[in-house]
Simulated assay, not measured.
Amino acid sequence: MTTMQGKLLCEVFKSSRKEEMYLYVDKRQGLERIPEPLLERFGAPVSVMTMILTPEKMLARTSGADVMAAIEEKGFYLQMPPAKDEYLLDLYRTPTEARY
């Protein structure tokens, strides 16, 4: 892993096949450690951003520490789309104001 004193230069790719599916990889390694079956399912990767990750950084659905650990272990971190049922439950749980 390319670390700069606990930091990782990370590139994020979005899937061309599945909405809200993202691959996080070490910028210097790129996609070389991604298994071919995963790339086939992921579709053509579209680069969306490069960022410096630290273990303390909080991302929308995970932490920098989790992403860095996965990249160290597997060569990538795969962020899956949220389950549709959870999304609908969140909408249901959102308080609404009744107006009469």
Rank of each mutant, 00 (worst) to 15 (best):
Pro35Met: 05
Val46Ala: 03
Leu53Met: 04
Met49His: 08
Met68Thr: 00
Glu36Ala: 15
Ile34Ser: 08
Lys27Thr: 14
Leu59Pro: 00
Val48Tyr: 01
Phe13Asn: 00
Thr50Tyr: 02
Ser15Thr: 02
Leu31Thr: 02
Glu72Met: 06
Leu23Met: 03
Arg41Asn: 03
Met68Glu: 09
Pro37Cys: 05
Glu32Gly: 02
Thr54Arg: 01
Leu89Phe: 07
Gly64Tyr: 00
Phe76Ser: 09
Gly30Asn: 06
Leu91Val: 04
Asp66Met: 15
Tyr22Thr: 02
Gln29Ala: 14
Leu31Ile: 00
Val46Asp: 03
Glu11Arg: 14
Pro95His: 06
Phe13Gly: 11
Glu20Lys: 07
Thr54Tyr: 01
Asp90Ile: 04
Ala70Pro: 00
Ala44Thr: 14
Pro37Asp: 13
Glu97Asp: 10
Thr62Val: 09
Pro81Trp: 01
Phe76Asn: 00
Leu53Lys: 01
Met4Lys: 13
Thr50Glu: 15
Arg33Asp: 10
Pro35Asn: 10
Lys57Val: 10
Leu31Pro: 10
Val12Cys: 09
Met1Gly: 12
Val12Thr: 13
Gly64Lys: 03
Thr2Tyr: 09
Ala60His: 07
Glu19Gly: 08
Val67Met: 10
Thr3Val: 01
Glu36Ile: 11
Arg33Gly: 12
Asp90Asn: 12
Lys57Met: 05
Glu86Lys: 04
Val67Tyr: 02
Glu20Asn: 10
Val12Asn: 08
Leu39Arg: 05
Lys74Phe: 14
Arg99Ile: 13
Asp26Val: 08
Pro37Lys: 01
Gln5Ile: 11
Glu73Phe: 03
Val67Phe: 04
Tyr22Glu: 04
Met51His: 06
Thr50Ala: 13
Leu38Ile: 13
Gln5Arg: 13
Leu38Pro: 00
Arg61Trp: 06
Pro95Met: 03
Met80Cys: 07
Ala60Arg: 15
Gly75Asp: 06
Leu88Tyr: 06
Glu19Ala: 06
Lys27Asp: 10
Lys74Ser: 12
Met68Ser: 06
Val25Phe: 07
Asp66Cys: 04
Gly64Trp: 00
Met1Thr: 14
Thr62Cys: 11
Pro95Asp: 11
Tyr92Asp: 08
Phe13Trp: 04
Glu11Ile: 11
Glu56Leu: 04
Thr62Asp: 07
Glu11Gln: 14
Pro81Ser: 09
Phe13Thr: 01
Val46Leu: 12
Lys84Trp: 15
Arg61Leu: 08
Leu88Lys: 09
Leu91Met: 05
Arg28Glu: 15
Thr2Ser: 15
Glu11Phe: 11
Ala70Lys: 09
